[in-house]
């Protein structure tokens, strides 16, 4: 029987650990692996990697693993892990930071749809100051189709997806839950300035 020992090299793990701690405001070092977070995580069954595992990856400086695991991309930000952590570590915040770091490093997201969804939402909010659901969903579908084609996805899957979405759209319309009026704010210039500031901040990193 072979056993693999864990290699810990502080000089490798420190930069990642420090950046995650600084940006998320979470004391990752306080984790003593009690796994209360894992027990409460609603997506833990699906992701395999639970919050305690993710924290261990960060402590060991396993950068690729920390960016490319299902937990980071399936986390629903319900904040259960952090609420129950005896050491007050909010792993959902760490997931949020890892998504931002991987975007800044131009790493292809493990689930591009998740990234496309949140991008489309924020883009829509920047256009009119409020999110108009129809515009937001259209932006999302366009971005998604484009990235699916780029990854060599077949037309068939795309057409099926669009049919699916149209079905939802029609049932929403039947229930008068679709809104066609465009909501736009007067102070859009303030919103544009805040977005510009946000871009400045991400370039500074």
């Amino acid at each position: 029987m072979s056993s693999q020992s864990v290699v810990f090299k502080p000089e490798i793990s420190k930069p990642l650990l420090q950046e995650v701690m600084d940006r998320s405001g979470q004391n990752v070092l306080a984790c003593y692996q009690c796994r209360r977070c894992a027990a409460g995580c609603p997506v833990g069954d699906e992701t395999g990697v639970t919050p305690d595992r993710l924290i261990r990856m960060i402590l060991l400086g396993e950068k690729n693993e920390a960016f490319n695991n299902l937990l980071v991309w399936k986390c629903v930000a319900c904040y259960t892990c952090g609420t129950r952590c005896p050491n007050n570590i909010q792993t959902a915040r760490i997931n949020e930071i890892l998504k931002q770091m991987s975007k800044e490093a131009h790493i292809e997201p493990l689930n591009p749809k998740v990234a496309a969804f949140h991008n489309a939402f924020l883009t829509s909010a920047s256009h009119f100051g409020r999110v108009n659901e129809l515009e937001f969903m259209s932006l999302y579908e366009i971005q998604n189709t484009r990235s699916e084609l780029k990854r060599g996805g077949g037309w068939r899957a795309i057409v099926d997806k669009i049919k699916d979405r149209a079905k939802l759209g029609i049932s929403m319309m039947k229930k008068k839950r679709l809104h066609f009026k465009l909501d736009k704010i007067k102070g859009l210039s303030e919103i544009k300035r805040l977005y510009a500031k946000a871009r400045e901040k991400s370039v500074d990193r």
Binding site: I97, H118, L122, A125, I191, K201, S202
Partner: peptide, 17 residues
Amino acid sequence: DWNCCGATSAGKTDDFL
């Protein structure tokens, strides 16, 4: 003249916004 709060999307992808 309120604006969108950014919801989960800003929380997950842009700490400043």
